[in-house]
Design a protein around this nucleic acid. Structure first.
Length: 882
RNA sequence: GGAGGAUUAGCUCAGCGGGAGAGCGCUUGCCUUACAAGCAAGAUGUCACAAGUUCAAUCCUUGUAUCCUCCA
């Protein structure tokens, strides 16, 4: 066999793109035809506006790992990719572009504007797809979907009309959150509250009968023109007698009543609040209870309308506030102004202050949907990882509020409702009607509002599979298995998908919900454009490779914890990839002249058996870790197996046999190395996909592509406790001698004689059989296993370990003081352990209550500590005689 | 005002009731014919604080402190 040459350095650019293309061309990402149980995942669709950031990289890396893992387990696996039209966000992007050209969307008109938005969508879509490919995501591009493509639009209509038919959608005049800048209503969740400094104004409202005045406190005096009452708490003794009296609203000629309502907090301000139903959610509810009029003061653009005195009309709220305060002061109504920080809602897209705004909107009645979603959780149909998110989920579901789904935007799914201009009939329809069913008129006009973006994304797990049609995909891959998402969209998206799926298909859309942390910078700040602290995944890939990025993120992603990283963090994965590359390079170049042979287990040495056992242990750890989505544990198992076990010990141990053995020995050794390497590539593939594929193709013993190869699972036959115990003895003895050499500053060029004194037995026999290997690990000229204490060790340097003692024959260059200090430290540690053990063992309660194994283990520890103490003392005495 | 998370080595973090761990950084020695992005050896901790449960607590319970999220 010829040696296989690998380039001198690991350079992922050499092969990542090529391999991705090959996988794609071979159709490796599509589901196999196997009749095993399916495994499916839908990708949380990124907003088609943006480019992918580190959070996406984390999220998709984890999904890719899960998907590749299950694919290799032989399940027909489907990972559905796609993008979200992101209503407000995308419309904002296009409007900002227009703004630069001095245009507004109204200047273009709806149709032209949408045309332009589609172009932006196409451009960003290509970028996003390119990024996912660069990352190596093994999603099935043949199944790619977009929330506004034809099939999904049909699903949206089906969902809307079905809910309407079930009486769960209604239209009405309500107070909604309104962003004046975006010019649209927002759902409750789309408002972000921020504590900002403000003022609290105490204002006098005189009694209408001239008998004095009362004082109310408000943060928004400009809304007083919408006041239709002042309220006090019915239990408030102070104001018992004034309820029912009338007040004169300052700066106007209106009279308003004093009412009593439980929602008024007695201890806030004066205990009296003005009621402005059209501009405060609490007041709105209160107004409804008391039949008060709601006076809307705002135009859609946020300016004050004709319901305020003329001088304030056309002003924005903040502008008007100043003037109103001035006027109140002039009129003698202003009592005092105090600083008062309070929470103000902001639009989650453009950060403009959100106004409560009275308008006609469409709503979904959520109670019954939420109850089904809660039942799904109670029945165990969904499970969160980590579990604690279930509290968040149930809390939200239990306190659900109706969902405002209409948006005054152009980019999105237009609400499938038409109005007949002739007779006023409202038509809700799955298909575009051309005639009024009532008057048969043809003057129909479609509702101009579009639906909230989440109204399409909440259908994602089944609309992408063909729903409302009963497609084979839907049949085969729904419900999906695992959803991976960050915690910031549990409410927006995850909860609603569960509700939609339960409502329309009667099943939960997925079983496992994996909630990842957020990616933060090294200072713990959220990565954001405005802070400029983001790390571009493409830059990471450019510098370190896609595998290094994926492995690093996986290694750092402890379940549900935020991940803090900077550019340098990715060196972790990069170094590991480099290590794998170089180990492979070494092994492949030693194939020259070798023949791979059948590996006969009876011919394996203990070290051979050990590496198989260690491999097997890693496989089991990964299996357990993947079951519970402990990605970091899986990554760590891989890392320590390949680097610490395989490279540091096994490959080193194989060198003598591989380089100096007989041809037969060399062939067997090379075969074992190739076998373990081949298995390792399969084991590591989900975590380091490109690298393992590139290497796999070069292995003489590979079969097909690693992406489609079977995943190594725990194999009882490979488990070998005896070999593990023996190997750790060998490692320990090598370590002890190396440490002694290092402490004594003996350079590696000096080959010294070593005597290991221990009891006769299997262990001694093993070490004796591996004496030459031990010698190479220890840098010894010879290693003698002395079980009869017959070797003369006078003048040799002693090094202690549990179960044996090593004597290193060295006379020169010994730093006695330093070694003495080390021994004293060792003595102290051992004495502390002994003390702890003795304390436990002299405790009657421990002996009677603890498990028998625990007591036995403790006795072992005590004996061990005693041995260490004795050795340390002995060696200190020896050292003194040097 | 509720809910949740965090507090472990200089830094970033694992650790899920029985002798404190990893990576990076640091110290020392090595270009040992795969890797100096490497090898070997090493130092470093009142596991935030206080009570409690337990034979046994970094781990469970309850408080306290600091920091961070989310919800109202």
């Amino acid at each position: 066999m010829k040696a296989v040459e690998l380039s001198r350095t690991y350079d992922p650019k050499d092969f990542e793109d090529r391999i991705y293309k090959a996988w794609k061309e071979k159709g490796e990402f599509g589901p196999s035809a196997s009749d095993k149980e399916h495994f499916s995942v839908v990708m949380p669709p990124p907003n088609v506006t943006g480019i992918l950031h580190m959070g996406h990289a984390l999220n998709n890396s984890l999904q890719d790992i899960i998907v590749r893992y299950h694919r290799m387990l032989g399940q027909p696996t489907l990972w559905v990719p796609g993008t979200d039209h992101a209503g407000i966000a995308t419309q904002n992007v296009v409007e900002r572009q227009l703004q630069k050209e001095g245009l507004r969307r109204q200047d273009l008109g709806r149709e032209k504007f949408l045309e332009r938005t589609w172009q932006v969508k196409e451009k960003h879509h290509d970028i996003i797809k390119g990024q996912l490919e660069k990352m190596g995501c093994s999603c099935d591009w043949d199944h790619e979907r977009f929330t506004m493509d034809e099939g999904l639009s049909r699903a949206v209509r089906e969902a809307f009309v079905t809910l309407y038919e079930r009486g769960l959608i209604y239209k009405g005049k309500y107070l909604v959150n309104y962003c004046p800048k975006c010019g649209t209503a927002l759902a409750d969740d789309e408002v972000e509250y921020e504590n900002v400094p403000g003022k609290l104004y105490d204002v006098r409202y005189p009694y209408a009968d001239g008998s004095g005045y009362i004082t109310v406190a408000t943060t928004r005096p400009e809304t007083m023109f919408g006041d239709t009452a002042v309220a006090v708490n019915p239990d408030d003794e102070r104001y018992k007698d004034i309820v029912g009296k009338e007040l004169l609203l300052p700066l106007t000629d209106r009279r308003i009543p004093i009412i009593s309502d439980r929602f008024v907090a007695m201890d806030f301000g004066t205990g009296m609040v003005k009621i402005t139903p059209a501009h405060d959610p609490n007041d709105f509810e209160c107004g409804k209870r008391h039949g008060l009029e709601a006076i809307n003061l705002l135009n859609p653009d946020g300016t004050l309308n004709e319901n305020v005195p003329e001088k304030y009309r056309g002003m924005m709220a903040e502008e008007a506030r100043k003037l109103v305060v001035e006027d109140l002061e002039k009129g003698g109504y202003l009592v005092k102004v105090t600083d008062h920080a309070h929470d103000v809602g902001h639009c989650y897209r453009c950060h403009t202050t959100v106004e409560p705004y009275l308008s006609e909107q469409w709503f979904v009645s959520m109670r019954s949907l939420a109850d089904k979603a809660l039942a799904a959780w109670r029945n165990g149909d969904i499970e969160f990882f980590p579990k604690r998110w279930e509290n968040t989920y149930t809390h939200w579901m239990e306190n659900i509020r109706d969902w405002c789904i209409s948006r005054q935007l152009w980019w999105g799914h237009r609400i499938p409702v038409w109005y007949c201009k002739d007779c006023g009939k409202m038509i809700v329809s799955r298909t575009d009607p051309d005639e009024c069913p009532e008057c048969h008129g043809h003057h129909l006009e479609q509702e101009s509002d579009v639906l909230d973006t989440w109204f399409s994304s909440w259908l994602w797990p089944f609309s992408t599979l063909g729903w409302p049609d009963k497609t084979p995909d839907l049949e085969r891959f729904f419900p999906t298995n695992t959803l991976v998402s960050a915690y910031d969209i549990i409410f927006f998206w995850i909860s609603r998908m569960i509700m939609a799926s339960e409502e329309f298909l009667g099943k939960a859309p997925f079983h496992d919900i994996v909630i990842t942390g957020l990616v933060r910078d090294i200072k713990g700040r959220k990565m954001s454009k405005s802070l400029g602290n983001g790390i571009d995944p493409l830059e990471v890939i450019d510098r370190y490779g896609a595998d290094a990025m994926k492995f690093t993120l996986c290694y750092l992603a402890a379940q549900g914890q935020d991940v803090m990283i900077d550019m340098d963090s990715f060196r972790l994965g990069s170094r590991f990839a480099n290590k794998i590359w170089n180990a492979t390079r070494y092994l492949l170049m030693n194939l020259e002249g070798r023949n791979l042979v059948e590996i006969d287990r009876s011919r394996l040495t203990i070290m051979d058996r050990w590496i198989y056992s260690a491999f097997n242990r890693a496989a089991r750890t990964i299996e357990d870790a993947m079951k519970g989505y402990h990605f970091n544990e899986a990554a760590q198992a891989i890392y320590s197996f390949f680097w610490n076990d395989f490279c540091d010990w096994y490959v080193e141990a194989s060198k003598p046999r591989l380089l100096n053995g007989t041809d037969e020995e060399k062939d067997l050794q090379a075969s074992i190395l190739m076998d373990v390497l081949e298995r390792s590539m399969r084991l590591m593939h989900p975590f380091l996909s490109f690298l393992t594929e590139e290497i796999y193709q070069k292995l003489p013993n590979h079969h097909g592509d690693v992406i489609a190869a079977p995943y190594p699972v725990f194999d009882g036959l490979l488990e070998d406790n005896e070999a593990e115990a023996m190997a750790s003895l060998l490692q320990e003895s090598a370590r002890v001698v190396r440490a002694a050499r290092s402490n004594l500053q003996i350079g590696p060029e000096k080959k010294l004689k070593v005597v290991i004194r221990m009891e006769e037995g299997e262990k001694a026999a093993f070490l004796r059989s591996e004496a030459s290997l031990l010698a190479s690990f220890m840098g010894a000229s010879s290693v003698i296993i002395d079980t009869s204490a017959s070797e003369d060790v006078s003048g040799a340097f002693p090094a202690a370990a549990v179960g044996f003692e090593a004597f290193v024959f060295v006379r020169d260059a010994i730093d006695v003081d330093a070694e003495m200090a080390r021994l004293e430290n060792e003595l102290k540690k051992a004495e502390a352990l002994l003390e702890a053990s003795e304390k436990k063992l002299s405790n009657e309660n421990f002996l009677s209550h603890a498990k028998a194994e625990a007591v036995e283990k403790e006795r072992g520890k005590k004996a061990e500590a005693e041995e260490r103490i004795a050795k340390a003392r002995e060696h200190m005495a020896l050292l003194r005689s040097f």
